[in-house]
Design a binder for these strands. Sequence first.
DNA 1: CGTAGACTTGAACACTGTCAACTTGAGTGG
DNA 2: CCACTCAAGTTGACAGTGTTCAAGTCTACG
Lengths: 236, 236
Amino acid sequence: MDRQQTHCCGARVDCANCGIRPIAICGALAPIALGKLAAIAGSRRVDAGAQLIQEGEHAQDIFTLTEGMLKIYKLLPDGRRQITGFMIPGDLVGLAYGDSYIYSAEAVTDIVACRFRRGSLLALMADHPELEHRLLSRAGNELAAAQAQMLLLGRKTARERVASFLLGLAGRLDLGQGEPMPLPMNRGDIADFLGLTIETVSRTLTLMRKAGQIALPDKHSVTIADLASLRAASGD
Amino acid sequence: MDRQQTHCCGARVDCANCGIRPIAICGALAPIALGKLAAIAGSRRVDAGAQLIQEGEHAQDIFTLTEGMLKIYKLLPDGRRQITGFMIPGDLVGLAYGDSYIYSAEAVTDIVACRFRRGSLLALMADHPELEHRLLSRAGNELAAAQAQMLLLGRKTARERVASFLLGLAGRLDLGQGEPMPLPMNRGDIADFLGLTIETVSRTLTLMRKAGQIALPDKHSVTIADLASLRAASGD
DNA sequence: CGTAGACTTGAACACTGTCAACTTGAGTGG
DNA sequence: CCACTCAAGTTGACAGTGTTCAAGTCTACG
């Protein structure tokens, strides 16, 4: 049950076979070829608000997030921003299209990430096809999330978007029963993730609070007070 | 220059080395392990308007589109629809999340697709890691497209969306100079792709026509009359 | 021709955005 | 400890883009 190994970057590696969700495992990659992965891995810390990667840059590294939260986003030339995802420990950051990163990534909180040189990882994959298999499965997950987000952005109302966002985050964060959910990102980030404005996000949260669907103990946490009602409000 | 091979499903296989874009190659997969791929491939024809796969269904097959156009989409329970992509020859359809398809796919025109049993393909990948590599690269492309579409849906105006759509499609379809671009999908499909209504799409196309940016010889074709202006109108 | 479906156009409306004022709370320094 | 400051968030009034609803128009097809 606790065949854990400590890794380069201090993350725990839970046994994939006994059903414990492998968090923070030099993320998506371990527990495959762990020793060899460790040999090519480095650690990287980034302060809240600082950037990890930038869209268009040469994609030299791939990261797996081990601590904290990261937002990935794209910008239009005039500054409009679309956050395409919030990454949590275990997530993979830096999949590239061709040679360049397809999005920028900025730390929401202080973060710790495991860094792999792209070249080294590719070389390692040649010997360990399971690694590539794992990456493909990961990419499938991301694609599924992206599709769901497109549905949200294209077809849901403000209320449905906020409800979906809260439920989606809660589902990924495995929280204790009744425990308030941390919302480390600010309202602007939520707005840019949901394709809304700060004001609309704020108003919608207030409405949900007044409707008894959620509680807002402080600006950076939420409690889901009425799960069924929130689900009904999410549109799906 | 014309080292072509004819394949199970009648598609041409252009030599990847001489720079010809490999269209309709049992799509994304060939020219890897062509013989073995051919051995496990089947052909599937679908009439315009009929469904190829359905969201949530057991994902038994993977397809590569060889002829025609396919739309992939997700639905909300109340019927709202988001089209997440239009597939053209060479594209891969049916990447799954876990065991189930994450979207439905319906033929826009009559189509021909190459069908691979998921299991057979997985088995073949065990012997040919390049196949998996190819799939991963394909998934990366799709992810990049999904991110761009999220930016469009979350942050662009109606005009920018339509302009981006036309430019994006034109970029994929390699057309002859001055040749009108076919738009086999109807206005409702475009609307559901861009997160707009039929009326807004229609109005916007009319505005663009009156502004001299495009011409609309008939309802199912467009000519880009002023590329620079259309680019400027696309927001990026 | 006549019909039906797809598309276009028009007018009124509504959801969300914009602009502006106000509140809150964390951090700072006297 | 308290006043001050500033950024983040909330709330309100109004405006605007895109939606909704409702007629028209076009075109393919019998």
